[in-house]
Design a protein around this nucleic acid. Sequence first.
DNA 1: TGACACATACCAACTGGTTGGTATGGTCTC
DNA 2: GAGACCATACCAACCAGTTGGTATGTGTCA
Lengths: 209, 209
Amino acid sequence: MTTTQPTETARTRLLDAALRVIREKGYHATSVEELCSAARVTKGAFFHHFKSKEDLGVAAANYWSTMTGGLFAGAPYHAPDDPFDRVMGYLDFRAALIRGTTAEFTCLVGTMAQETFLTNPPIRDACFGSIAGHAETLEADLAALIQSCGLAEGITAKGLALHTQVVLQGAFILAKAKDDPSIAGDSIEHLRRYFALLFHAHKPKGDMP
Amino acid sequence: MTTTQPTETARTRLLDAALRVIREKGYHATSVEELCSAARVTKGAFFHHFKSKEDLGVAAANYWSTMTGGLFAGAPYHAPDDPFDRVMGYLDFRAALIRGTTAEFTCLVGTMAQETFLTNPPIRDACFGSIAGHAETLEADLAALIQSCGLAEGITAKGLALHTQVVLQGAFILAKAKDDPSIAGDSIEHLRRYFALLFHAHKPKGDMP
DNA sequence: TGACACATACCAACTGGTTGGTATGGTCTC
DNA sequence: GAGACCATACCAACCAGTTGGTATGTGTCA
């Protein structure tokens, strides 16, 4: 801690800028120079830390996993003893995150995966890794819930966890297309209701118009 | 039919190429020259028919609406008398469309909306118009279904129709990210089950692993 | 302790190629 | 012969990536 560490500041600033700018404009519409000016570094610094733009894309997806991983790990929805309450708490938490501008609450890796799935497979793979890794944090709660309810008809915890991500990613697309965040909350409420019906022990929390 | 009509052939070829190439590479990663060579026309023809690349994006979204509109209007799922069967038939139809490469079965306007929601508002609006217009074709069946079941608790036909599009768009994102179409079918099956539970008259058709 | 070797972090300027878009001219039909 | 349709040639701006270089460490051995 005694020595100054200029190390990591430029790199971190570039990654922070990437999270912000790429969510606004998308991967291909964001130029390297634009990221540099947003991070207040030069192009030389960029290519010192990342060997290519694609390399930054992969690093940004992994950085996104780290950032969001910390956010969700520290969230309060893990507290309840009942797995149903934990799952519902997760959905409430996701709904509560929908605020600010559309670019602020939507998902970096969903955005990048869509643009890069054929042009930049390494980025696509890092994006799916991020989504799948996040889904796994839900899987344990869903598995406990499925077991406690004796649900068997071909429904798996992994499948339900991925379906949850599907709904969230789709909700972000519609929110962007309509330029209206409320549509995302509506779909999360439908997913809540699906879980409530599926595990028919509770009912959806709030009525909504 | 007697007179040759060079009119519309270049324009149509460009729009067909746009549907294909943009779904593969995305809007920003697709260059005008690439569209021209895919359509076997020159740049002069491109800028004769479209005043800018953005103009082509809007036209492509509208062309997509026309093409898919015809496909769904002519589909067999409208036949049943029971609105529940029509809605389930719609989902079966959507599931059956998932074949071939990922770029072939995914949605142009969902892809474009995500990349252009801040950079090209005219394209974004055309994309949402396409999605909303398609959702409306489901709305009547859902309204009839809601009425026949006496469902009241804040669920609207419009909201359900949009949620259906949310699930489909999200399913396409995950299919691209995982590079695996089957994940899309899984989510459609979850949506089927949601409808079945919601209107608790039927059960989901097939068991799935 | 000091000095030399080396690695890391960063910068300004540049390069070859690509981009969306334009200017102009030719050809075909009505 | 007017206008729709399309081709060729071209442009300024922008793109990702490279270059040669500076500054600041950091490890090492006399």
